[in-house]
Design a protein around this nucleic acid. Structure first.
Lengths: 200, 200
DNA sequence: CTATATAGTAGCGATACGAAACAATATTGA
DNA sequence: TCAATATTGTTTCGTATCGCTACTATATAG
C-alpha cells in the first residue's frame, strides 16, 4: 500500500500497548479455562520454580522474591504443596534458619500435566529462526522490566556474569564460591546477573 | 563454537518451556512490585478492556469471556470500577437486558498511570523490524492458545474475517451487520475471527 | 403465549494475599 | 565474649477476590 492510497478504514499495525496487553492476556489464558484445576496459579508457579531453581535458590525466601510477593505468602504456598506431597523440606546443613525445598516424584509427575505446556508446545512449533529471535526479545523485555521494578532477574547460571567457564571441567560461580554441575548451568538462580546484554 | 568443542558446562539455548515461564513471569512483573497499587490486576484489566473494546463488546458478559472468568466475578469487578467513578453504565437501546459500559474521563486519566506502560515502553524501544516480528509471533501464540482453550480470540476488527473493506468509505461488518468507523478498526471485538493465519 | 435462552446481579463460602508480630539462627562489631 | 542487628521462616488476622448457585429481567423461538 503506497502513501497515496490511505483508506479511511485501513487497519493500522498493532501498537506496543496492544502487544503488551496481548502478553498479559496470553499469561492469563495459561491458567484460566479448562486446564488442570487441582492447583492454583501460585501453586503451579511454585512447583515450576522449585523444579527449575538451582540448589542455592530452592528456598521459600528466594521463591517469594521470584514471585514478587511476601515471604509469608510464599511460606503458605510452599506449605500447601508440601502437605499435598508435591514438595519436600530438607534441612540446610550450613544455615539452621534456611531450608532446602525439593520436588518429590509426585511433584515431577504433576508437572507432566502443567497447564503451561499448551504454551510451551505452541512455542516449540515456531520455525527455528523465529523461535531464537523471539526467545531473545522475551529475555530482553524481562531484563528491562525486572530492572525497572528492582526485581531480581532469575536467569540461568550459564548466562550469568558470576560464572567462570573454563575450557574443560566444571564451571565456577564467583558469587556462591562453588563449582557448578552441568545441570546447574540451565537452572534459575536468585543471584543472577546477566553476563552480556541480550539485545544490542 | 564448533561441534568438536563441547564443554561439559556449556550453557544450552533456552528451551520452549523456559520461554513460556518467562512470559508468565513477565506478565506477573507488570502488576507486581512498586506499580500503582490503587487498582487490582483484575480492575486494571477491566479498565483497559473497556477502553479498547468496540461498542458491541463493551458489556460485562463480553469482559467475562475476555478475562476467562464467570459473569458473576466480572460483574463485581465492573461494579467496583463504577463506584470508583472510572466506568459508567449506559442502557442498551436495543436490548433491555444488556448494558453498555464506558470509561469515564477519570478512567482515561487513570490509564495514564497504567502499570502496563513499563512493558509498553520496553516494546516500543525494540528495533522496528524486531518489533514487527515479535508482534506477529505473540499474535500467533495467542491465537493458538485461545483455540486450544476454546476461548474467544478478541482481535481487532480490521484483521477480522467478518470485515468487508471497500476501497473507499467505511468498512462493513458482516457479523454485526453494521458499518465500522475508523476507531472501530483497531478496537477489540468479542466476535473476532482471524481473516488470515498470522504465521505460515 | 408458553418454553427456553441469555444478560446481569446477589449472596455464600473458600481461599489467596499482604501486613504485622514473632521465633530461631547468623552475623557484626565493640 | 557478648550484645545489637540482620536474615530466614512461620503464624495469625483482616481484606478482598473468585467461583458457584440461585435469582430476576428481558429476548427469542415455536
Amino acid at each position: 500500500m503506497t502513501a497515496e492510497t490511505r483508506f479511511t478504514t485501513a487497519p493500522e499495525p498493532a501498537t506496543a500497548s496492544q502487544v503488551a496487553e496481548q502478553i498479559v492476556h496470553l499469561a492469563r489464558l495459561v491458567h484460566g479455562g479448562t486446564s488442570d484445576q487441582c492447583l492454583t496459579p501460585a501453586q503451579w508457579t511454585a512447583l515450576r520454580y522449585f523444579a527449575r531453581a538451582n540448589r542455592f535458590s530452592r528456598t521459600p525466601s528466594a521463591f517469594s522474591e521470584f514471585h514478587a510477593t511476601t515471604r509469608g505468602t510464599a511460606s503458605q504456598t510452599v506449605k500447601s504443596l508440601i502437605s499435598a506431597g508435591l514438595l519436600e523440606r530438607h534441612a540446610n546443613q550450613s544455615d539452621g534458619r534456611s531450608s532446602l525445598i525439593e520436588v518429590t516424584p509426585a511433584g515431577h509427575e504433576k508437572l507432566q500435566n502443567d497447564p503451561l505446556s499448551a504454551l510451551t508446545r505452541a512455542i516449540d512449533l515456531l520455525p527455528e529462526a523465529e523461535r531464537a529471535r523471539f526467545t531473545a526479545v522475551i529475555a530482553h523485555l524481562a531484563t528491562r522490566l525486572a530492572r525497572e521494578r528492582t526485581a531480581p532477574l532469575f536467569g540461568n547460571c550459564g548466562d550469568c556474569g558470576h560464572c567462570d567457564t573454563t575450557d574443560s571441567g566444571p564451571a565456577y560461580c564467583r558469587c556462591t564460591q562453588s563449582l557448578l554441575a552441568q545441570e546447574d548451568m540451565n537452572a534459575l538462580c536468585v543471584d543472577f546477573s546477566p553476563a552480556a546484554p541480550n539485545l544490542r
